[in-house]
Design a protein around this nucleic acid. Sequence first.
RNA 1: UCCCCAGUAGCUCAGUCGGUAGAGCAGGUGGCUGUUAACCACCUUGUCCGUGGUUCGAGUCCGCGCUGGGGAGCCA
Length: 460
Amino acid sequence: MYKRVRVKQALASGPETALEVRGWARTVRCGKEVAFIALNDGSCFGSLQVVAGPSLANFDEICRLGTGSAIAVRGRVVPSPAAGQAVELAAGEVRVIGPSDDSYPLQKKRHTMEYLRTIAHLRPRTNTFGAVFRVRSSLAQAIHRFFSERGFLYVHTPIITGNDCEGAGELFRVTTLPLDKPPLVGGQVDYSADFFGQATGLTVSGQLEGELYALAFSDIYTFGPTFRAENSNTSRHAAEFWMIEPEMAFADLQDDARLAEEFFRFLCCHVLDECHDDLAFFNDHIDKGLIERVRQVADSSFAMMEYTEAIHELKKAPISFSFPVEWGLDLQSEHERYLTEQVVQGPVFIVNYPKEIKAFYMRQNNDNRTVAAMDLLVPKVGEIIGGSQREERLDLLEARMAEAGIDPTGLWWYLDSRRWGSCPHAGFGLGFERLLMYLTGMENIRDVIPFPRTPRHAEF
RNA sequence: UCCCCAGUAGCUCAGUCGGUAGAGCAGGUGGCUGUUAACCACCUUGUCCGUGGUUCGAGUCCGCGCUGGGGAGCCA
């Protein structure tokens, strides 16, 4: 007769419902006549107020419960006579499942994000991280739904790879060779003796493999872990992060931008519609303007600006930048933010960059000096999506590789895709954690991934 | 990797001009209360990051190191 339900259902159930909830005590307040326990099981932002009276056999034990204790409560949902909650649980029985003493590191007070990072195994029990990881899960599922509804194939590109996507980032080595005495040939490590018979590492991008699948399934996407061994010590970089990379066949840069815009707006709408309790918390306690900012992006149509035009805008800007502005140079964060925040005052695609500052696989434009690349810039962060139309013409691709000094032998399979049945195709990449930062207002990437991996940090 | 800032009780922080430390929370005891990160009274808690130096004397000043943070670059 006591059905175990989650706190989320208990809070939504009608009066006089008999049920059981199990969870962790957030706070325990005790008096002579009554004790209150705020019980949370992670199912939603709110906690259920459990009310226990001295008639319970273990009332003393309940009063000594420490913050963080795991308990099971059977009782009736009743309307709450006090302000603060609509209903509460009148306890008929409180079972202590896992007690928690005063050495429990999470207290009924504000902690710094830095401290909580040192207890990454316990921080999901806090308000902030509960909200972050509910939104993370919800968004991940929304991403799959978005692509699924549009007929995109979900591809699992390899985690271990022999290609480094030609400069997308520093590779983590994967090897079974003994590090203290690797086999040598002419003073160099002999990777032919390694597990895979060649040098391998963890993937820095699934794009090249993704393209191969787009040239069979038309529209595909990848959504998986990505690894970069860069010594980056910033709030926006992690050595292990998750990336979403759609790729469409028979598509050009305009199609690519349309998809990116639709995708980004879909995700903004998703958190506004489906995560309002958690988002309200972020808006109140983490980032005051969050909901307004996300709503504006959800409602706006994105602008588009040529790189050449962007350089013009930057050159006539009434402010001075610390990095130079010149046609042919890459845009810095300060430039990107000026364009999206001051010039456009909203999301903007910058398209057609000089080929020298972009990757070899991007499609050359007819002007011979730019490629069909696009970056989506949004207020407060700058670039959030980067993509391009790919070079589908074999001769031009080979020429670009030679220019860029890239050895084609290891990429024979990539070049093959341009040999038979090649077609225009385009795609983009979105860092999942950066998306989460944007949609939650959390300012450090280490606080939107459960157990962050950054230089010198691989604990937990 | 570069540039800045910080490190004091379990946590969040204060600490004046250089004279070996204090508040809130947490914890303990008692009280009170249909409470809302409850409240009131009393009590407990320190390798002042480490190391070397200056000084009669260093939490405080200086050097080096470690750790953390912010910014930049690389990038998603």
